[in-house]
Nucleic acid binder design. Sequence first.
DNA 1: ACTCATGTAACTGTGTATGTTACATGATGG
DNA 2: CCATCATGTAACATACACAGTTACATGAGT
Lengths: 159, 159
Amino acid sequence: MSLDTRLSGILHVLLHMAEHHGPVTSEVLARAMHTNPVVVRRVMAGLREQGLVASTKGHGGGWTIACDMQRTTLRQVYDAVGSPALIALGNRSERPTCLVEQAVNAALDETFREAEALMLERLGSVSLAALSADFHARMVAGGHSIDHHTHSHDAENSR
Amino acid sequence: MSLDTRLSGILHVLLHMAEHHGPVTSEVLARAMHTNPVVVRRVMAGLREQGLVASTKGHGGGWTIACDMQRTTLRQVYDAVGSPALIALGNRSERPTCLVEQAVNAALDETFREAEALMLERLGSVSLAALSADFHARMVAGGHSIDHHTHSHDAENSR
DNA sequence: ACTCATGTAACTGTGTATGTTACATGATGG
DNA sequence: CCATCATGTAACATACACAGTTACATGAGT
């Protein structure tokens, strides 16, 4: 099954934005994410509605972070991109009258709900600031200077 | 995203088979699962390769359970259907050179791996016999007699 | 032989994320 | 005020995987 990469992509974009002073255009963000500017805008629209980012038009316009990165968690970003399904498996029918299927659903649903709850809890425990700090730690560990214009991006888009 | 219902469907089928004495044909199982006999055979092929079920051709042929239901877990059934992805989210690129993306991937991957491990652990802790026992308990609780020919199946195939 | 049932290939249907094109809207700078 | 830049959004194309369907071959039983 093909995976939903919107959360991954938008987090990438947010962290890049955090390294900039002024607004960043969709085109610049799209290049960093190896995708199309329209795709960026589409996903960012959800974040804007939640007040996580703001957009300005015209010359010198673009996207800016409009939230406190210390208080904003990955969970909020996840919800802002539409809270897509976390679990890739499901039951063939909800509310079946067949007792066999009810037993199967009960067993699987409990497992699914537990895993889902765990993921949501984990996402809720990581702030954007923590993610950004991790990035800076990696930069120091790799011997890079704090220069966000020299990040290289690989072209592989596998999985 | 549309969900993978093979595990759910095949467990339904296995529990139905457990209520029968002799072999059950793909057509009968397909009716219980509200699907096509070929779909049943396709998924059952994986179980046969793992020795969980056996098939016989010709008159009076069909599918029979070929494993110890006490010792066989949902995890084994899950593996037999091809171990499909459990998590519906993913990263835009594996092994990125971009440090920002590395940080994002690390955070998300850990969450995903934990949830996946939890699900596999849960699936591994439930035997087919336990599932079947749960089914029988539901039958008693609902005041049904042990007559597996009167199970009704609903027609809704939502989600 | 005839029938029944599995075994498979090949094709279609469907839903969703993703990618792309096109154009409208609004803001800025000369 | 007009050209340019950037977002906003609709519309359409593409890719992919599960699911469903048709068709036919293979083998077992009567």
